[in-house]
Every structure is written in structure tokens, then in C-alpha cells.
Design a binder for these strands. Structure first.
Length: 235
DNA sequence: ATTATGATCGTCT
DNA sequence: GACGATCATAATG
């Protein structure tokens, strides 16, 4: 894993309502209070939970602050982007193309304005209910793409600015054993976090500015990551 | 297989 | 008033 903070974090939370949830402790705010380019790859393999649904993150993008023309924070703390300049470890939710609610996690110290966009993942809890809602989608496609990921998790505007470090409706934590997916993999095959997985990086997608920055990160070999699928090249 | 287009609305100019 | 950090569907090779 990366340097320093990626080990098992010390849970800052005492017992409370959130303690009833079984699983690893959430990442503390200090995990997100680092350069966004350090946090982004460290989030690969982590889990986002909202109610009964949990997604294991397989693809992310880093967005900078005033220095990143592709970032919503580029124009400063406008009403929409103000959350990005707030404390790290909180959700930044925005409406994409008038249709899709997409989820970011704010990073860095207050005033920096950086965040990680969660672009794709694998549904590892609540999958039956999710599948029932979108029966035409293959399991690997349920949370593929930021719009679908947000949709599966039930991300809505009111979640913006809520902490993901515990005590809020959204929680990000180190990935538990993936065995609960029930897709043939037993707990013995489960991979905690991104351990054993290769991480690749490349340009961000869907943007028109700063396209040269390789600020997109993904787990190699994950079906939910479109870039991981070898493109059939014509001869 | 790839390409084109409509949906739909908050945000910023 | 224009433009998206996108997706689903339809048309076409």
C-alpha cells in the first residue's frame, strides 16, 4: 500500500449508534487530510456504504482545487463547490448532466478544494435488491460509471457535506472480506483493500480541460472498470 | 463492433 | 442562455 496512513487506522469513534454496524472501522478524517493524488489510489479497494448497499471501489479520479481547470473548485468556493473547500472526509455530491448524482470525497486541508470522484465499483452488499431494480444490467455493470455508482448507493443532494468517517449516512471504510457477494468466491478468496491488486493510472474521462493529467486510477482486472477490458483491436 | 442523439436541470456567464 | 466530472437507446458497419 501507499506510505504512511494506509494501515489500519485507529478508530476515533467511541461506541454509539454507528457502532452497531458490523465491519471495519471507517477511515478517519486524517486519511482524507492528505494530497488528493495520495488519497485517490488508496481508496481503491475501499468500501462505501449507504444503508443496506455497499460498493467496493475500483475506479476513482482526483480533482484539484484552484489549480485544476477540470475541477468544480477551479472558480473558487462557489455555492456548489464550497463543500470542496471544507473539512476533508465529507461527501461532495453534484448533479451531472441534469440527471446523475455523483459522489466525491473531499480531501486535503480546509481551503484546498480537492476531492476524489468515485467512478466505479462492485456491489458487495444489498446486491439482490439492487439487481431487482435494474434486472437488465449485468452484475459487473451495476456500479460501473459515476452515475450508476451514485444511483446504486442512493446518493442524493442532501448527502453533500455529510461526513463519511462515521456517524453519517455514508461511510467509507477498508474493504471487508468480499465473500458476502455470493458470486462463488469464498471468504478465503477475499482481498482486503487493494492488496495484491495492481493499480494503473491514466487520463481522466469526460472532461475538456486539463486532459493531459493522469489523475484517474483503477484496479487492474476488475470487470467494473471499463479501461481494464482489453479492447478488441481490428486487424 | 462503434457512433449518434436525447434526456434534463443546476450552475455559472 | 450555454454548458456539462453521464447514461440509455437507436441506428449503422
Amino acid at each position: 500500500m501507499g506510505g504512511g496512513l494506509t494501515g489500519t487506522p485507529t478508530p476515533p469513534q467511541g461506541p454509539g449508534p454507528a457502532a452497531a454496524v458490523v465491519g471495519p472501522a471507517p477511515y478517519p478524517a486524517a486519511f482524507f487530510d492528505r494530497p488528493v493524488l495520495a488519497v485517490a489510489p488508496d481508496l481503491l479497494g475501499a468500501t462505501v456504504r449507504h444503508g443496506p448497499v455497499a460498493v467496493r471501489i475500483t475506479e476513482v479520479e482526483a480533482y484539484g482545487g484552484l489549480d485544476d481547470p477540470a475541477s468544480h473548485a477551479f472558480r473558487g468556493p462557489t455555492p456548489r463547490a464550497a463543500v470542496m473547500f471544507g473539512p476533508p472526509g465529507r461527501a461532495y455530491v453534484y448533479l451531472s448532466y441534469g440527471i446523475h448524482w455523483c459522489l466525491n470525497i473531499v480531501c486535503g486541508p480546509v481551503g484546498e478544494g480537492t476531492a476524489v470522484l468515485l467512478r466505479a465499483g462492485e456491489v458487495i452488499a444489498g446486491r439482490e435488491a439492487v439487481q431487482a431494480c435494474w434486472p437488465k444490467l449485468a452484475a459487473r455493470d451495476l456500479a460501473r460509471g459515476p452515475g450508476r455508482l451514485g444511483r446504486v448507493l442512493g446518493v442524493v443532494a442532501s448527502l453533500t457535506a455529510t461526513p463519511v468517517t462515521g456517524g453519517g449516512p455514508l461511510v467509507v471504510h477498508p474493504s471487508p472480506l468480499a465473500g458476502e457477494l455470493g458470486d462463488g468466491r469464498g471468504p478465503a478468496d477475499a482481498v482486503p483493500g487493494a492488496a495484491g491488486k495492481r493499480i494503473e493510472r491514466g487520463p481522466r474521462v469526460g472532461i475538456t480541460a486539463a486532459t493531459g493529467r493522469p489523475w484517474r486510477f483503477w484496479l487492474v482486472g476488475e470487470p467494473s472498470v471499463s479501461a481494464a477490458r482489453p479492447r478488441h483491436r481490428r486487424r
